[in-house]
Design a protein around this nucleic acid. Structure first.
Length: 273
DNA sequence: GAATACCTGAGC
DNA sequence: GCTCAGGTATTC
């Protein structure tokens, strides 16, 4: 389940491996992952050089530039199971929906659940398609974030998952952030003081920064550009550990549902405020 | 703000 | 063969 740290790693890999390379072909096996037709997508991108990758929350925006300077932008969301990779001798299985040909170098897009989307957009920096998405979680400063979340009455977990407030956290890193901040997932911002909310944002950034360094978290399907899993799973404090002992206090971690999502927390270490 | 649709594989 | 998992858009 790619969240901000996993998407960041994918974006870095695309840039490192493909920047400066020209897209010479695009094979489409399942057009449902494209926002436009296969023909329109090829028409916009084939012949152009990959010149940049920008991440905002869980979105990637890839810039392609023609020799005449004209540009096209592909906005990518991997959702649950989208992945890109380059592997020597790889034979695509039934979940590979797209193969980008970068002048002889095949780059596969694989997506078991077909939830991911790759769509052409007009702009690269602040696309209209992202107007409903809040500031990137790693970039946002506390005053702005506090304006968006302070005083609200919904469970803080639901608000952290709401990409319109700030973009990037998913279920794994929300649970981790709240544990590290000592805040209960059902706590309401209106019941928390400024210092507690400051801690949530700080810990959220901290845990994602660390996860990026470790190549992200592989729980089910995520792999990096070379088919390798991320290493952050063994660092997780609560996610996936319901019923197991808290690493800090030895209490049994509780598993519940908050905001419609599976949620794990420590009943001793995390407070309602 | 809750439920549902989208999809498939894993795990019972 | 059923239920669950989950990011987001959509619909109550």
């Amino acid at each position: 389940m790619p969240e901000l740290p996993e998407v960041e790693n994918v974006g870095l890999a695309l840039k490192k491996n493909l920047a400066g390379r020209r897209l010479t072909g695009l094979k489409v096996d399942f057009a449902g992952v494209l926002g436009q037709s296969a023909r329109a997508t090829r028409g916009a991108l084939v012949g152009k050089v990959l010149t940049g990758v920008h991440r905002h929350g869980k979105y990637l925006i890839v810039r392609f530039t023609d020799d005449d300077g004209s540009m096209a932008f592909l906005m990518i969301h991997l959702r649950m199971t989208g992945q890109f990779f380059i592997l020597d001798g790889y034979i695509p299985d039934k979940h590979v929906h797209l193969t980008f040909d970068f002048d002889g170098l095949p780059v596969h897009y694989r997506d078991i659940r077909k939830f991911g989307r790759l769509e052409l957009v007009e702009d690269g920096v602040a696309p209209a398609a992202l107007s409903h998405v809040g500031p990137d979680m790693m970039e946002v400063r506390f005053p702005e974030w506090y304006r968006r979340i302070g005083g609200r009455r919904a469970p803080i977990k639901a608000l952290l998952l709401n990409q319109g407030i700030a973009a990037g956290l998913g279920n794994i890193y929300v649970d981790e952030s709240l544990f590290l901040a000592g805040v209960h997932p059902e706590a309401r911002p209106c019941d928390l003081d400024e210092a507690e909310l400051r801690e949530v944002l700080k810990r959220g950034k901290q845990v994602m920064r660390l996860a990026i360094k470790h190549g992200g978290t592989t729980f089910m399907n995520f792999t990096n550009f070379h088919g390798k899993p991320g290493n952050f799973r063994r660092k997780l404090r609560v996610y996936g550990r319901g019923g197991e002992p808290c690493r800090d206090c030895d209490s049994v971690l509780e598993k519940t549902v908050v905001g419609g999502r599976g949620t794990v927390f420590c009943p001793e270490c995390q407070e309602l405020g």
